[in-house]
Design a protein around this nucleic acid. Sequence first.
DNA 1: ACTATATCCTGTATGC
DNA 2: TGCATACAGGATATAG
Length: 292
Amino acid sequence: MPELPEVETIRAGLERSVAQQSIATVTVSHPRSVRRHPGGPEDFAQALLGRTITQVSRRGKYLWLAFADGDALLAHLGMSGQFRVDRPGDPPPPNTRVEFTFTTADIVLRFVDQRMFGGLSLSGGGAAQPAEIAHIAADLLSADLDWDALVAKIVAKRSGIKRVLLDQTVVSGIGNIYADESLWRARLHYDRPANTLSSSRISGLLEHAQAVLGEALAAGGTSFDALYVGVAGESGYFERSLAVYGRQGLPCPRCGTAIVREPFMGRSSFRCPKCQPRYRVEPSRPSRVEAL
DNA sequence: ACTATATCCTGTATGC
DNA sequence: TGCATACAGGATATAG
């Protein structure tokens, strides 16, 4: 599942391949992949012709190709989206949904998406930052992150801490894999209410999350299968560094206890039952009212 | 305002 | 062997 490290790996690969290129042709082979474009697939393709890409940017799990005219092509990979940079004539990978060719580069850019939770859209005036993602918070690797404000926002929430980590309007870029890995490093249970944690504990959790994301990025992301690969089809290799995600029944790398898998928020959560015990509400001590 | 859930989608794995 | 079901989960719409 593409989360921040995977999206950033793809962003960097795209920037190396398509920056300074002008779009020559656009072929949409499945309308769902451009469902957020109001004018439909034909209008989407037509509107992109001749645009020159200046750079490729990212915020959280969104990325966008900025155009010289100030607009942008906004993309989200969803569960299974990929960008592939191929040679013309290379057979298209299965589930290729949109294809681009360029006026000068001898490459074809393909948006591939098996499950089609992802998609592409044209963002008017979005080159610096698309208005469509104004609600997406800064991520833990971004320069404009306000650490203290983030901690304050989290400590005010009553939701389980994992739900908060996954809320892209609080902090962006974290998905199920890195949420579980961060919580394991911080020895926290996923359902512990955020407002039962001290600010320093939350800050520590965020430092762990930042470290996990950075390490995964350095490894090129996490590839479980062919659903996440880089723009040249290469796998990331952070999977071997995962402590808990997908490892139910295997020993916790810290204490040896078997990792468990439990449903939470309609998806799987992985934790060490010994390092990350369920949070118990402190028994409120009988309030002796002195005056009585 | 805040919190939680239903929904979208398809290839793969598992169960009977 | 074949068919049915479960599962993977990011973001959004909707409900409470």
